[in-house]
Design a protein around this nucleic acid. Sequence first.
DNA 1: TAATTGTTAGCCAGATTGCCAATCACGTCG
DNA 2: CGACGTGATTGGCAATCTGGCTAACAATTA
Lengths: 395, 395
Amino acid sequence: MTRLAGSSKLLRAMNASAALAHLLDAGGLTRADLRRLTELSTPTISEVLRRLTEAGLVTVVGYHSGRPGPNAEIYAANPDAAYAAAVSVRDIGTSGAPSVVAALADLTGTERARIERRVDFLHTDPKTALIDVVAELRETAGVAAEGIHHVQLGVAGSYDPRAETIRHVDVPGFARPGLVPEIAAALATRIGVDNDVNLAAVAERRRGVATDVDGFALLWLGQEGLGLAIDIGGTLLRGARGGAGEIGYMPLYAPDSTHRKVDLQDLVGGAAVLALGRDHGVPGRTPLEVVTAAATEPDRAGEFFPQLADRIAVGLAAVIAVLDPSLVVLAGPVAQAGGETLLAAVTTAVRRAAPLESTIAVTTIDDDAVLLGALDAGLTAVREALIASIRDNQA
Amino acid sequence: MTRLAGSSKLLRAMNASAALAHLLDAGGLTRADLRRLTELSTPTISEVLRRLTEAGLVTVVGYHSGRPGPNAEIYAANPDAAYAAAVSVRDIGTSGAPSVVAALADLTGTERARIERRVDFLHTDPKTALIDVVAELRETAGVAAEGIHHVQLGVAGSYDPRAETIRHVDVPGFARPGLVPEIAAALATRIGVDNDVNLAAVAERRRGVATDVDGFALLWLGQEGLGLAIDIGGTLLRGARGGAGEIGYMPLYAPDSTHRKVDLQDLVGGAAVLALGRDHGVPGRTPLEVVTAAATEPDRAGEFFPQLADRIAVGLAAVIAVLDPSLVVLAGPVAQAGGETLLAAVTTAVRRAAPLESTIAVTTIDDDAVLLGALDAGLTAVREALIASIRDNQA
DNA sequence: TAATTGTTAGCCAGATTGCCAATCACGTCG
DNA sequence: CGACGTGATTGGCAATCTGGCTAACAATTA
């Protein structure tokens, strides 16, 4: 139900933003391409491009030769018109992985800087740490402060956008109310916060196995916990308080109460994987090591993968029954270490347990999925803000 | 990302459709009201209304007196511009309820006809039965065949819109591929098919307890089966093959394999309710009778409701963990019979089991929720089609 | 030569502002 | 108590302005 109404000014703004949207999507387009895409006339396209070029949002990036007539100019969105920054924060935990990974991308999506830091948030204020990281990103890439239009934060927790507060975080200091607005004020940018698993799903949709799917669920098997992201037609399901996908806490039904109350975290969380490894004589001190060891020598791991798969299938069966996704993606360090062996085991286990058939796949993203997803999310935020600002301001 | 581009014709169409959208939503508006809502100038509003009136979509329904100046004309969408029909089909089963309930509503949403029929689909072709019902609706309301723009069908099953086929239906004859297109061709209307529980959720959103909620889950406790509808911001989640919410088939985790594989249907389905009633000495031959008896004399039912609630909570805990809805609505005959007693029991059971807190409520719709939801769904389809046709045809 | 690119000129559709007549409520005066 | 003036409001008309379109044209390259 479009309720947009207005005068010719609205029209001009709409046409400009439509053209910009196409340029952002396609990358490089000639006037003739835009004419076909927007169904506008040549003079109008010229006028729109003239205005967008004047505003610094669009530039000529090349010429299309080899055909009769003058070489057509190829227009593209100006990479330096706006930047998006992404910061992925995680608890250091037992692994030696850096606790802050950050990257900066220009409007076209090319990564211009990336840094990794170990930050001890017990002794460092998140606010100053994040501001410093973003400043360092800017220096590395040589970008002015005003250039960054959006900073996307990824944390292992949920974000309540109404209260502007991060909840269910383990990293010290991040749960403080008022933190996010303060950072936004200090950086003078819009700031977005999202769950790390959600952001991994964004990356999966843009560059992974879920590019052409109308909806999918991503099960994240991490070193400690597990998480679920739900993508419905490209938008993520967050739930009332950002708690959608917290299946780690999903209680499992016990027919008689002699069993103590167990949830899915007890079944497939890091500790459970470790214990399962011990039971089957698979070596390794961390869940990742255990799964890697089992995957490299599947014959010696015995029933390790089938049993792990059976447990994963318990959670996936519930997810599939509720959501009926066309694709289920296994991601996270444990899933990636398990690889094809784990995938095969989970596929058979789910086929046995779940009422509906869903394709199951392992992520194809080798890089830091959370960071890439944060970058993608920040980028789309920047693009949408640009398009909206054209529609509103140029009135 | 709006990519709409065009010339002044698009503008006119947009303004007309915006005005119509407001008129459909608000009911009766003066020119001044529309001026405020659309932010268009007086001459433009006049022109738009003139065109809409000429097209027969809008009429003057009254005059606004009691204020200085001439009595302002009150415009409203013409009720007779289009009609929507709704047909709810269910298996007769053990109850004596009619198997086909149908209604007809005009564009403003007032019900103009309703009929109920018992149809034996073992000996009657669904196609002819449905065509007859719609014809009867038309006669009762005195509406021409072309007046009906949309027929909404509600069935206990799922609809695959790509294959245009109904799946997982118990009612004989409805699973036949090609049935829906044939009915659409015979009636010469658009036809929509949806799951009955989904439609009940539509009604709940429009006239029930879920009017102001950003998303909710509706658990349907029927005479036989159970179902789940998921509303996210007003749109229903259907899943890849229309199988979202089929939690009846959700398998339950058994810690050891000595228990046979049980799913949620075994736990809270009609048969389970009957058995539970027997165990607690609650009289009744159908699940509805059992629950009604228990609700009228809660003291004599003992642990019936707490135990039933515990079982319901098993399913709801999974739903809440996956979706984090801000509201969970209990609906369907069994839930309505259980009333406040059941609600209280379920609330405490869920609070104990589920990781997140969700408000739980019982439906407030006394009428046939599925039928009303189908009517609402058909009506919005008609309205959107009207608005879209203005935007496209008046070019 | 033919096809293609991009510009300029004139035209047209549609929305806006400003102006005006008509209408009604309300207070005041005869 | 009734008639009348005042002010607010409605709705129409004319003039203006913005913006996109068609058509013609110059320029360029296979």
